[in-house]
């Protein structure tokens, strides 16, 4: 109890202490995933303005092959955070192989103008656990606690 009271006095949810806590939560390293890397192949159909499947889930270290087939017009695919790109002509399949070296949730986007909603033709690559999402949830919990602390006064 003494420890809790000391912590309460020390923190008091002041803005500087919250900022420091937030930075710690954001930048503290997350434990690496323990899954054994494997080879994975995904067949993705690209049509205006969607990918099917739109969400790919893999483990860090996996060797991934994407087979991109464009079903209507030319489509491309590049993954945020990975310096990769592939383009597929209508009816054709293009392949891209890479090692998923970065953990987290990444958007992949069409790189060839394919119509009005082209800039928003987006899919999602989930590599292992989305630690940033969990860090965000932790931070929002912290903000909730700070708000509760203030309201109890």
């Amino acid at each position: 109890m003494k420890m809790i009271r000391w912590l309460q006095r020390a923190v008091q949810f002041s803005l500087p202490s919250l900022a420091v806590l937030a930075l710690v939560v954001i930048f503290i390293p997350s434990p690496a995933a323990a899954a054994i890397p494997t080879d994975r192949t995904f067949h993705i159909e690209a049509r205006r303005f969607e990918y099917a499947p739109a969400t790919l889930t893999i483990n860090p270290g996996d060797r991934v092959t994407l087979e991109l087939t464009a079903t209507d017009v030319v489509h491309g695919l590049s993954i945020d955070g990975y310096n990769l790109e592939v383009t597929a002509d209508p009816g054709q399949t293009a392949r891209l192989t890479f090692v998923a070296s970065r953990q987290g949730s990444f958007r992949f986007r069409c790189t060839v103008t394919c119509g009005n909603m082209h800039p928003f033709m987006i899919g999602k690559l989930e590599v292992g656990r989305n630690t940033l999402l969990w860090k965000g949830i932790t931070l929002l919990g912290l903000a909730l606690a700070a708000g509760m602390w203030r309201l109890r006064k």
């Binding site: 954001i26 945020d80 965000g136 903000a143 700070a146 708000g147 203030r150 309201l151």
Partner: peptide, 30 residues
């Protein structure tokens, strides 16, 4: 388009700031 290195972290910080700020505006212990 690669802004993924910082944009996601920035978004988390912005949403955290928004909730924190909202908590300081709420009144009557609501």
């Amino acid at each position: 388009p690669d802004v993924s290195g910082f944009s996601s972290i920035l978004q988390v910080i912005l949403l955290f700031t928004g909730l924190l700020w909202a908590g300081r505006v709420i009144r009557q212990r609501s």
